[in-house]
Amino acid sequence: MASRYEIRLSGSGGQGLILLGIILGETASIYENKNAVQSQSYGPEARGGMSKSDVIISDDEIDYPKAYNVDFLLALTQQSFDRYTKEVKKGGIVLYDSTLVHSPKEGDYRLIGLPLHETAVRDIGKSMVINIVSLGAIVKISNIVTIENTEKALLKRVPKGTEELNKKAFYAGVSLAK
């Protein structure tokens, strides 16, 4: 089942990683006729501490719903970088935030550092949209779903009145990854 693609979104609570995972899952399952599963850590972990959300996308049936052989890791804090890079598969991608992760360790993976947080703050004016900036970068880098479909899913999911802001954040992420 070579088509199974595992994405792990990690960082701290409040960075909107669950929503990010949901948008990726919705894009794949509703707009691309693929299968997708999303799961997340619950409990104290999800309340401000470390947070993670796994998304599996596949053309085939998805059995195990969690990531264990990660194709794509997003790490938005040093702690999550350290903890989850171990589970990235050989040749997988690690996208990290170049200001929030200060010492990214090299490994058997492709390492990409981008100023996701900075872009959210400087270009969009809201640190909160770091998840949407990341979404743009993930989609651009991984190619796992198309940019157009992701935009559709994004606009359907975000609160009314915030569409333009989110769209801007999304494309800022796409551009960062170019």
Partner: peptide, 10 residues
């Protein structure tokens, strides 16, 4: 169980 109850899926 919690896995099935909480996960999102198509």
């Amino acid at each position: 169980d919690e896995i099935i109850g909480h996960m999102r899926e198509k």
